[in-house]
Every structure is written in C-alpha cells, then in structure tokens.
Amino acid sequence: MVYQGELFVVDSGKPERCYVTNGNERERILGTLAQIDRALSSSPTFDPSVPNIEFSLSLDDLPRRSRGKGTFFGYTRKEGREYNDIWMMPNYAYWSWNYTHAPSWNSIRKEIEQRETQLPWAKKDPRVVWRGKVKMAELRKELVRVSEGKPWSDIKPVVINDAADPHTKDVMNLRQFCGYKYTVQTEGTSYSGRLKYLQLCRSALITHPLEWQEFHTHLMRLAGPDVNYIEASENFGNLESAMEYYQVHDDEAERIARNSYETFARRYLTPAAVTCYWRRLFWSWASVQGYEPQLYVPDEQGNMVMRGTPWTAFAANWPKDPAIIP
C-alpha cells in the first residue's frame, strides 16, 4: 500500500514457498520494494503526491505460479487476453542482483559504460557470444548445436558452481559480453534476466521471437531507422546466414548496436527512467482502483490499528514479523 506518500507492506504472504527453486526471495522482495520507495521519495516537489493505492505483487518468473486470480503487478507476461490482468513492473535487478555479480544497477551501468568508452566497435570481437544453462529451454540446446565449431561463434553452455564440470571454466561476467559485436538473448523459464544487461552494451543483440514481455520490450524495433536488434528464427536455424550477412554489412550491425545503446542504456533503462515508469504505473493504477485504501482499521476492542507495516521496518526485520517487537 502507498498511503500519503509512504510505502507499507500489508501482507507478505509466504514467499519462501514460491521461490524454493530460486533461493533469492529476499533479493526479489527487497529489490522490488526498494524501487517503489525510491519512486515515492524522489517524486519531484512540483508533482502532486502519488495517490493512495493498494496492490498485489507477483515476484515469480512465472507470475501465475504465485497467484491464479486477481489483478496484480508482475515482472513479465505473455501477449493475449488471458494476461491482461498482469500489470508489468520493473524486475528486482534494477536495484540489485548479486547472483550476476551486479551489486547495484547503477554500478553495473557505470562499469559497462566505462568499458564501452575504451572499446570502440572496430576493436570488438567480431563473433557472436552466449553463455547459459541449456537445460532451461530446448531452444538453448538448438543454439549450441547450430553454432558449434563455427568460426563466427563463441557460444558455449555453462554449468555454475561445479568445479568438476568442464563447462564451469566458460562462465563469463556481464561486463565481458560487451567486448563482442554480437550478443544472443534466449528465454528460459520465462523471460530472461540477461536482456537488460545485454542492452547496456553497444553490441548488436540477436534474439529469437520473444514469447515473454517485460516493461520495456515494446521499445525493441526490428526494422526502420530505429532498428535496435536482430531477430533469429525460433530454433536459431538462420543464425549462420545472419552472421554471414552482417559480417559483410558491418556498418548495418554497428547502426543496430548504436541504436540499442542509445535507446536502452542511455535513455529508457537509466535509474531515472525506471523510477519514472514506477510513478506512471502508480497513477495509472489509481485511475482504475475504484476505492480508497484505509491504513487504519478498528481492532476487536475498537482501537484504530495500522493494517500494514512501514517499508522501513519490514526491510530491517524481514523475514521476521516486524509487528512483534521484543
């Protein structure tokens, strides 16, 4: 709930039951709520305060796995009427995602930007690069298969945290991908968290047709003067012909890379733009909410008590119940 410009957690549910396979429920919860708090606390003084709103969040990669009915905010959705009740919000990693060695969105942006200033297009590795877990999706296996042994490819599967597996040595950090002219995006369980990081690079992004949307993917342009990515077929069967084409038409690939960098790294994925999106989301939600949220309600004795926990107390105490003061 947002009430008089302050963020409250009304019901945290049982997130540990949703993310047992991910193990980063704390990072998802705090990273999402911290962004909301920043959007509220940094609202310009000349703007009217964000209205009082109450909403639900799904922090799962598969939003319907957390909740089957109702309208709520989620990180992703598919096209179609059956997903119209999911309002898209920015991913938690726009705050922090330690798993990818990106302790903050600001820090990874600055490091990649610095690398880009030191590495002009002509000095980048001309191959296409990808790393990932192939077991997450069949199309990833196809990507590895069609590119294996090709001179234009640096595409390899990886295994995380298993020193005995030979693929462990092929792990790369996010900054290294920007050293290539071409990067590949692949979906996994649903959307892929790597997309926004690849869009920080001045590289030509190659992706299969995306099935899962994110809050910014409508800004991806396949054709025209603002083209900012290259679309491969679903099984990457045309990847070799695409690489052969762009190696001859290097200027076109550079234009795609530049357009992507200017659109996303320099504009729509900046902390300011992401924060602006949150505030627009709040106002749009308020316009259809249809009721006035109440922060205080009477208890059994008739005393007015707070329904929610202030975000500050929740962040300091979760997963313990901050309402229980020792």
Rank of each mutant, 00 (worst) to 15 (best):
G31Q: 03
S107M: 13
A286H: 07
P126V: 02
Q118M: 15
H249D: 07
I29W: 03
M88P: 00
V134L: 09
M243E: 06
S41N: 11
L205M: 14
E16N: 10
Q114E: 15
D154N: 14
L143K: 04
N228L: 06
I29G: 01
V171H: 13
G74K: 02
K156M: 04
S66C: 09
A272K: 13
S66Y: 08
K150Y: 14
E6V: 13
R267M: 13
V305T: 11
I108H: 02
A257S: 02
E148K: 13
P225D: 09
E148S: 11
E113S: 12
G149H: 06
L195C: 00
R267N: 15
Y19P: 10
S96P: 09
T217M: 00
M89R: 01
V146T: 02
A313N: 14
C201S: 04
R267P: 08
R140G: 00
L210I: 06
R17Y: 09
G31V: 05
W152P: 05
G31H: 04
R109I: 04
E113G: 12
A253E: 00
Q4D: 12
W285V: 02
Q247G: 06
Q4I: 05
S43Q: 12
R38T: 15
P319C: 05
C18W: 07
D162I: 11
E252C: 09
E244A: 12
R280A: 08
A223I: 12
S107E: 15
R65P: 03
R175Y: 11
D47A: 12
T183H: 09
W130D: 06
M220S: 10
Q35V: 00
A286I: 03
Y19S: 13
V144Q: 04
R145K: 11
S260I: 05
E214R: 00
L30T: 10
H249I: 14
L30F: 04
L200D: 04
F73A: 04
